[in-house]
């Protein structure tokens, strides 16, 4: 038998990568490059002819109050969703990070919304929040005697998509917070307890700081998800309305392409999102390991 060395099969690794590379090049890299190119063109009215227009699309976007409002709205949406979502998730994670019979069942329940699609999440919440047959307004009426116009008032529609997004993404945060919590050694808690710290002090002075690497990672991931994953929720719940109140960047992009048929303008919005992702990723790598606690 001839002895084989895999390094002598010099073409094998390239063959192994080839199928993945073909798909990624054709369907990920190529269209992304095309987005950049397309963003420099505008389409002639009534025709398929494309005319080079330099940075016009970008100038139009940034001078358009609708797009600027959409950017600001998206930033507020992301901030509130992340802050609210991480706070809720952290509390729930601490609760299910206990040695208790049946704790796994509770964990499973908390993960379930994460497996559900944005469209289904949107549909479930539209029902819950509807003013006629929905249960939330019934209970709000019963308890506080208020009727909230959830999806017909701009402010409340905005809150509604935030609630649905937090509910849907909670599971992801809990998975990571739990992993983070379980890596904190029991001895740290024990010595704190011996020193007479109460549960709240332990949470504030030990749990929160020791979880900071996880929290940082989750903030980065949540920025990206909240921007990109909210499309289905918005499309089912509000279609960007009422009066643009929930018209976040991702929804405006879709509408400019597939409703208003302005590919150049939509491509420019894609490029802006791409730059945003690159900036966020850059921060992730640059500051990912700073200001964090290690044992």
């Amino acid at each position: 038998m001839k002895e084989q060395d895999y390094d002598s099969h010099f073409s094998v690794p390239y063959l192994l990568i080839l199928p993945s590379m073909i798909i990624l090049t054709l369907f990920l890299y190529w269209p992304t490059i095309q987005s950049v190119i397309l963003s420099l063109y505008r389409t002639a009215p009534f025709g398929s002819r494309r005319i080079y227009s330099g940075f016009d699309n970008y100038i139009n976007l940034f001078t358009d109050p609708v797009y600027r409002a959409s950017l600001v709205r998206s930033a507020v949406f992301v901030l509130i969703t992340i802050f609210g979502g991480l706070a809720v998730s952290l509390v729930l994670s601490v609760l299910v990070n206990q040695k208790l019979k049946g704790i796994k069942i509770y964990r499973t329940i908390f993960f379930i919304p994460y497996a559900i699609s944005p469209t289904v999440a949107g549909s479930l919440w539209v029902f819950l929040l509807n003013p006629v047959a929905g249960h939330i307004n019934y209970f709000l009426d019963l308890l506080f005697n208020v009727q909230v116009p959830w999806l017909t008032n701009g402010f409340f529609a905005f809150i509604a998509i935030i609630i649905a997004t937090i509910w849907k993404n909670m599971g992801f945060n809990i998975i990571f917070f739990l992993a983070g919590l379980q890596s904190i050694p029991d001895s740290v808690y024990e010595s704190a307890r011996i020193d007479g710290a109460n549960a709240f002090q332990i949470f504030r002075k030990i749990t929160v700081p020791l979880l900071s690497p996880t929290t940082f990672y989750l903030i980065i991931m949540n920025i990206i998800f909240t921007i990109f994953q909210s499309f289905g929720i918005v499309d089912i719940m509000t279609q960007g309305g009422p009066a643009d109140a929930t018209n976040i960047v991702i929804y405006k992009l879709y509408r400019d392409m597939f409703v208003n048929f302005r590919p150049g303008l939509a491509a420019a919005q894609s490029v802006i999102l791409l730059i945003l992702v690159l900036i966020v990723t850059f921060f992730h790598f640059k500051y990912g390991s700073r200001g964090v606690h290690y044992q």
Binding site: Q34, S35, F228, L253, M257, S270, L274, V277
Partner: peptide
């Protein structure tokens, strides 16, 4: 992500 390349 899909949204940065969806048009082309």
């Amino acid at each position: 992500p899909m949204q940065v390349r969806v048009v082309p």
